[in-house]
Design a protein around this nucleic acid. Structure first.
Lengths: 193, 193
DNA sequence: GTCTATACCCGGATAGAC
DNA sequence: GTCTATCCGGGTATAGAC
């Protein structure tokens, strides 16, 4: 699995092959089949490790922030950072084309991350579950968008691009949350002037 | 190129091959090489067509909306719709792994789409170009995030998932814009109560 | 757990004839 | 513009020995 991650780091998920990974380990191509039924099963195992690291990374990023809004902003920041700093792991999660139905353990791991967003959002939208899932989706989409475009090179390369994208994602989430409540108040009490 | 698009629709960009496309057209694998230097050059040609369709789609979506904020929301809606309804074209744009440096024509086409966002944002942030590019990035990231997660199956399949994601993207952008100005006012005149 | 050996399929790409 | 023929490389996966 370590060799797989190294290989993915160099060539991307699409460039990964059991054959090449075996070669790097100095074993023959037949060896991995003692441990994994096929190529996808190895990738799925990497994905499970990846999503656990992802969850821990998000948790670490939010540990020091108590209020829900800043915590959501921190999650977005952590999301983007993880994507960039653990690029091979992130790409296995979202660019490997794994059939999630085939790997229930993986699906469960995804849901644990979703829950981190949802539980954070729930504090903000107590009593309005529809609004809550909508806001959770919006935060996740914002973070995911910045992360994807960053990995695509849209913001350039290098550490300053990472930091900038992460901060922009965080402040976009802050603005998003502020906007939701501003719009809600405006609807309740129109034209506050 | 049409055969390529059909094939990408069925198997995704990664499953596309010149050989299979040739087979479907009833020609041999050697034939395409009269028209394209290699596989990537064909994909790049498809990408140019794709990004032009993308631009037109965004333009059509915003045609009836005059104010900048609703127009940005409409662009996000159009972005998500296009990704879902023209999935093969969208995936060539963002999942083909094309080296943009190799295809200046393609790079120029990308920039024309970026400009659509930027010019729209410029009206909203007149006199603050830093803020403008930040907001443009945020809108694009939001739309891209919803689009990516939608194509990934995060919101389920079927037309209702598309519509819902598109509307959520639009309202997230609306909230984002409202939040920016709300936060700015709060900074200028703290605690309005 | 790993090896050797092998079967099999696929793709990219080119030369030279028509 | 297409064909035939061919070369080359790569990957997946299995059987059977050690």
């Amino acid at each position: 699995m370590d060799a797989a991650i190294d290989l993915i780091a160099e060539r991307g998920v699409r460039g990964f092959s059991l054959a090449e990974a075996s070669r790097r380990l100095g074993v023959t191509v037949a060896a991995p089949y003692r441990h994994f039924a096929d190529r996808d099963e190895l990738l799925a195992a990497v994905a499970v490790r990846a999503i656990e690291a992802f969850g821990e990374s998000l948790a670490a990023e939010t540990r020091d922030t108590g209020q829900p809004a800043p915590r959501l902003a921190a999650m977005a920041r952590g999301y983007v950072r993880f994507a960039a700093e653990q690029r091979p792991l992130f790409s296995v999660l979202y660019a490997a084309g794994l059939d999630k139905g085939r790997y229930p353990e993986l699906q469960a791991a995804y849901e644990r991350v979703d829950d981190m967003f949802d539980s954070c959002v729930a504090e903000l939208c107590a009593g309005d579950p529809v609004m809550a899932t909508a806001l959770g989706d919006a935060v996740q989409a914002t973070a995911h968008g910045y992360a994807s475009l960053l990995l695509d090179g849209a913001y350039g390369d290098g550490p300053e691009a990472i930091g900038s994208a992460a901060e922009q994602a965080a402040s976009a989430v802050t603005a998003l949350i502020a906007g939701r409540s501003a719009l809600r108040e405006r609807r309740v009490a129109p034209s506050p002037q």
